[in-house]
Simulated scan of single mutants.
Amino acid sequence: MSTAARRSRPTPPPAPERRGIGAGIARWARRIVVGVLLAAIAVVAGTAVRVWQVARIDDWSHADAIVVLGAAQYSGTPSSVFQARLDQAVRLYENGVSDTVVTVGGKQEGDLYTEAAAGKNYLMSRGVPGDAIVAVEEGTDTLLSVEAVSREMHERGLSSAVLVSDPWHSLRTRTMARDAGLDAWTAPTRTGPAVFTRESQMHGIARETGALVWYQVTHGSADFPYTAAQ
C-alpha cells in the first residue's frame, strides 16, 4: 500500500466499550449535580418554613429572664424596631413572666450609648425598676450578643430565658441561645416595622433564612450588612 493511501485511510471510531464508560460517567456527574442542587433547595425551603413557623410562637411561660435583643439606637433613643421589642418586654414583665429583664448590645463607633444602656433607660421610663434590669453592654451582632447574655446569666445562676425580638428573628436567636447553653423560647413583638407590611414580612423571612443557613453551616456570625435590623 502506498504512503498516500495509508494517510487517507479514515481513523477508526472509538471502541463501543470506551464510549459507554464515558457516557456513564457523564450521566452520574449530572445526577450528582442535580442531586446537590435539589438538596440545597430543600434545605433552604425547609429553613424558610421553620422561620415562618417559629415566628408564630408566642410563649409567655415563666422564665428566669426576659432577654431583649438589641437594635439600632440614636443618641440613647431606641429606633422604632428596638422600641417595639422593648414595649413587648414591658408587657411580659408586667404580666409576671419574669422579674428580670436583660438588655443587650454594644455600640458602633461614635455612639454615645450602647444598645443595652439605651434599652435600659427606655424600660425605666416605662416603669420597669432599674434594679430589675441587667444591661449587658456587649455584642455587635446576634451571635456575640447571645453569647454575652449566656455568660452573664450563668454567672448569676440563671438558665432560662424568653427571647424578645422580631418574629422572623426568633428561630435564629433561639437556636443560638440553646447552642450557648440557655433553655430558651420566644415571645416576639407583634408591632413595629418588621411586621407592618407583607413586603417587610417576606424580606424578614428571606433575610433570616439566609442568615440561619449560614450559621448552621459555619457556626459563625450570621449578621451581614444586609441582615442588620434598624
Rank of each mutant, 00 (worst) to 15 (best):
S2A: 10
T3M: 05
R6P: 00
P10H: 03
T11F: 05
P13W: 01
G22K: 11
G22W: 07
I25W: 06
A26H: 01
A40Q: 11
V43H: 00
A45V: 15
G46I: 05
T47H: 06
V49Q: 12
R56N: 10
I57W: 10
V67T: 10
L69I: 13
G70L: 07
A71D: 06
Q73W: 04
Y74A: 09
S75R: 14
P78C: 01
S79D: 13
V81D: 14
F82N: 06
A84C: 09
R85V: 00
L86M: 07
L86S: 04
Q88K: 15
A89V: 02
R91M: 11
N95D: 15
G96D: 11
V97T: 15
D99W: 03
V102F: 04
T103A: 07
G105Q: 09
G106I: 08
G106C: 06
Q108E: 11
Q108R: 14
Y113T: 07
E115S: 03
A116E: 06
Y122C: 06
Y122P: 11
S125L: 09
S125P: 06
V128I: 15
P129F: 00
V134G: 05
A135E: 11
L143Q: 15
A148T: 10
S150Q: 12
E152A: 15
R156W: 02
P167Y: 01
P167A: 03
S170Y: 00
S170C: 05
R172A: 04
R174E: 15
M176E: 14
D179S: 13
L182A: 03
D183E: 13
D183R: 09
A184R: 04
A184K: 02
T186G: 13
T186P: 01
T189E: 01
R190G: 14
R198A: 14
A206R: 08
A206K: 03
G210I: 06
L212V: 02
V213C: 10
Y215K: 08
V217H: 02
G220S: 13
A222H: 05
P225W: 01
P225K: 01
P225N: 06
Y226P: 00
Q230G: 14
